[in-house]
């Protein structure tokens, strides 16, 4: 087995629910444990998939790993750096992409690439070389001088992907990579992930789509209610039919009534 690149140890995160949220979710509870003692490991050069239903705590987990929020308890190490103690080191090791993180439409792809390169402290010469390589590889060159707001959804997705790896991170973290995308754009993303894997990157993604996991992932972790229900290599977990294994697990934990 190859080198461990992400290691989560007993991650825990709870939120205080606002009044508004309590009303929307029709609940009287004021605290919500979103992630409850989650541990797992991802390995270099592999794609790891966190699979779980809505509200399982996937986004929360990935946000903790990308240092946007701090765990209440537990820790995680990315390339050996603690997300709690060395968040800035971690940020230079990861590329994080979610639909909530957006690019300013006013700027061109070229400008944003340089800008985010500078934000990660990438040296100028290296940055230009990398820009040429990546733009060519993903067919962005022709659109480099177009304002981001004028790009098609597929091209914008590609641009976001390329910019998230401007600093050559070891780990790419991706929350719901194909959510809300049409089949063509979703294809752009899955191809990109495969390409990244080919480049030797390690990828951590979250999804609730079985086919995506089956197609891409080497390793999978199934989350229910903020807890890891099962974790391991895809073949081991799926046993031929991922969907069936998922629901078997689900009913075993939640009971037939749900």
């Amino acid at each position: 087995m190859s080198e461990e690149i992400v290691r989560a140890e007993g991650l825990r995160k709870s939120f205080t629910l606002s009044r508004k949220q309590q009303k929307i979710e029709k609940t009287g509870e004021t605290k919500r444990v979103a992630v409850n003692g989650l541990s797992f490991s991802a390995y270099r050069g592999e794609i790891y998939g966190l699979l779980g239903p809505n509200g399982a705590g996937k986004t929360t987990t990935l946000r903790m790993l990308s240092t946007l929020i701090r765990p209440d308890a537990g820790d995680a190490f990315i390339c050996g750096h603690s997300i709690v103690k060395e968040p800035e080191r971690v940020r230079d090791e990861i590329g994080f992409l979610t639909s909530e993180l957006k690019l300013e439409g006013f700027f061109t792809t070229d400008y944003l690439f340089d800008f985010f390169g500078a934000m990660h402290g990438v040296e100028k010469g290296t940055l230009q070389k990398r820009k040429r390589e990546l733009f060519q590889r993903f067919g962005i060159d022709r659109f480099a001088q177009v304002q981001v707001k004028n790009l098609s959804t597929g091209m914008l997705q590609k641009v976001s992907l390329v910019i998230s790896i401007v600093h050559d991170p070891s780990v790419v973290i991706f929350d719901e990579p194909t959510n809300g995308l049409d089949v063509l754009t979703a294809r752009v993303v899955t191809d990109f992930l495969a390409e990244l894997k080919g480049m030797g990157k390690s990828i951590l993604l979250s999804t609730h789509i079985f086919s995506l996991v089956e197609k891409l992932c080497d390793r999978v972790g199934i989350i229910f209610d903020g807890r890891m229900a099962a974790e391991g290599p895809l073949e081991e977990i799926a046993g031929g039919d991922l969907e069936k294994s998922f629901f078997d697990l689900f009913y075993a934990i939640k009971g037939e009534t749900v």
Binding site: S66, L68, R91, I94, E100, L101, K102, L103, G121
Partner: peptide, 10 residues
């Protein structure tokens, strides 16, 4: 959401 994009950098 463009400010958060800057927040994930170092």
């Amino acid at each position: 959401g463009t400010l958060s994009t800057i927040l994930v950098t170092s």
